[in-house]
Design a protein around this nucleic acid. Structure first.
Lengths: 350, 350
DNA sequence: CGCCGTCCTGTAATCGCTTACAACGCCGTC
DNA sequence: GACGGCGTTGTAAGCGATTACAGGACGGCG
């Protein structure tokens, strides 16, 4: 258990120490360091010398407390081990840093309890705003943030409310391109590996897929849909089921690259060749999509644009208090690589 | 620039508000919430009701300031977009959380200035300790932390000093296994793609490689060494150079998987087949090593063990003030997959 | 020479929480 | 009935910064 951790023994030097050494008041030291208020050259030099001599640096907690604001923004993601996220985190941190903010990253691990803890942590830290890129958000928790009037930005999740902005993803375009590509290659029997149906982003991807299938394959097409959880293993499992199904589909589209790679792995395990026996399309275009075996055809969701949209939207919320939420929209587009090819000649029946 | 951000308008409810509503003193509320000190049942209930009614949560900054400690530990990594790191971060966060600590992750991006900023941030946050897994550490910065008597744990970097512990990596074993494996397959001309030579971890890997080559190929073997920077692009570049060299090597070992995948990509770009034309071995065993084309033979550096070793070492530093640093040692081992095969029959000359 | 504005600096209140210390009520004991 | 101890609660002094406000020095001007 966590108990009785003692007050830290190491005593950092404080503003007062610097003040004493420089023979000035703490107010003057503060003004010098923060360049707020006039300080004579001679004094400034004296103070700076003391600062350097004592290796002083301000205590962030005291500073935040006195200032009444933290210049931190929270970023809530599902799973940093999913390679989609580090790239996003990096891009957001870069953007935020330039504007004078620091990012606290919290991970939900697709788990409601952890989500709750993360939100609480954000509140305790008094974040200036929160960017959410995790589908498993529930409303009570959003309410917690809204009550504190914390501006929110949802990525790929159309949540509306005061001080709430949205950067959404145009799934339709990229997925439509992908299905069109498959249709042109002669595929008629498609399968789809989706995310947890309760996740809105998963539902939207599925819907985009079904519309595209109806359009490009035909309204009677009833592609089979398998349920995954966005992790590789679930793609592997779904891949096994897909290969066992009759008639077997000739192409599979997965709701993210990890699951698509899982399907690929399942095929390899059965000695099948991609794209000869099965075409596979992923979603996200993570860095490894282009390195897999074979390079994965996928729908690219550009991280940089998402990040830029997110920080822009959040800062807009912070500056204007205006409720004029201009929703951002990030496009997606299909990238053809090696995992898609012509449909096999004969399908068993039909 | 960052100026004149106003004090936040949203007023959070404070301890005092709860106290007033519950008709008790702030001391009692604090004792109730933190379960420190006796509080009668009736009072506790009254306080908790007020807490819930007001949606109160404590202000982390004030709390930290009053407590004089932060229960945060710093984690310094080079690059979270390198897939080796998220897994490590995750494992460390899990471990630390169980022991009541929170992790602040800072990224150096292989850059000294950012390293400096990160260290300063740690100091301003008064972290209880720091775990470092980034090779580009320079001593002045370590000194900054040491001066504050902050316990340090270095992963894969034998830094000695007071309150400094080390978890090191036994490169020799895995790399020796890898080279032995290549030698058994008949390879005689090896090439190596290393990291920046100034990075100690890169130097150690190289040294382990050279020793292994001398042992398994012969003391006269002079494998060519190419310099990369641990990023995929540098492997791609090195791969190009390797393929252009005469006589071409028959096997390449890279100092991490990303560069190895770069080499693979370079081969594919030239229409060469792996492992028929060239065997490639990586290092780290990131999740995608097993999914690349072909699955990458690599030396596994187990993240979980590294994380466990790190948190264990840090907590030991925090609890005992003893200087009895028991250095941890994490093994590495070779994993044969599809990117290594028999050496091509005829080599052009010799 | 007195007054006033400008610059610089110091005093002290404040941010929200923890906690040492003191006070109080209640019981059981001698 | 006085006293000591225990359990509960309140008072107020920090934690280390920021900053409103006041004061002092200095120079220019009438």
């Amino acid at each position: 258990m966590t108990r009785a951790r003692p007050r830290a023994a190491r005593a950092a030097t404080r503003l007062g120490d610097v003040a004493r050494l420089a023979c000035v008041s703490t107010a003057t030291v503060s003004r010098t360091i923060n360049e707020t208020g006039a300080v004579s050259d001679a004094t400034r030099r004296r103070v700076m010398r003391a600062v350097n001599k004592l290796h002083y640096y301000p205590n962030a907690y005291a500073r935040t407390l006195a200032l009444g604001r933290s210049d931190q923004i929270g970023l809530l993601v599902s799973d940093i081990a999913n390679p989609f996220f580090p790239e996003l985190v990096k891009a957001i941190e870069r953007d935020a840093f330039q504007r004078g903010f620091e990012v606290i990253v919290a991970e939900t691990d697709y788990d409601h309890e952890r989500l709750g803890k993360s939100v609480r942590r954000f509140l305790e830290r008094d974040v200036a705003g929160v960017i959410v890129m995790a589908s498993e958000v529930d409303l009570p928790l959003v309410a917690g943030l809204a009550r504190r009037r914390v501006p929110l930005v949802f990525l790929d999740l159309e949540v509306t409310g005061p001080r709430t902005r949205t950067v959404s993803v145009d799934y339709a375009r990229g997925i439509d391109e992908a299905v069109h590509h498959l249709a042109l290659l002669g595929h008629r029997e498609l399968a789809y590996v989706g995310g947890p149906p309760l996740l809105i982003s998963a539902a939207k991807r599925l819907q985009a897929f079904q519309r595209a299938a109806a359009r490009h394959i035909g309204p009677a097409a009833k592609p089979r849909v398998y349920e995954g959880d966005f992790r590789l293993e679930s793609g592997l499992r779904a891949g096994g089921e897909i290969l066992a199904s009759r008639p077997p589909p000739t192409a599979v589209l997965a709701a993210n690259d990890l699951m698509a790679l899982g399907v690929v792995k399942a095929c390899r395990a059965q000695g099948l060749s991609i794209p000869r026996d099965l075409s596979v399309v992923g979603f996200d275009d993570i860095a490894f999509a282009s390195l897999s075996d074979p390079p994965l055809s996928t729908v690219c969701l550009p991280r940089d644009e998402l990040a830029r949209g997110a920080t822009a939207a959040l800062l807009q919320s912070l500056e204007d208090d205006a409720e004029t939420a201009v929703p951002g929209m990030v496009p997606t587009y299909f990238v053809a690589r090696g995992s898609t090819g012509p449909a096999p000649e004969a399908s068993p029946d039909r």
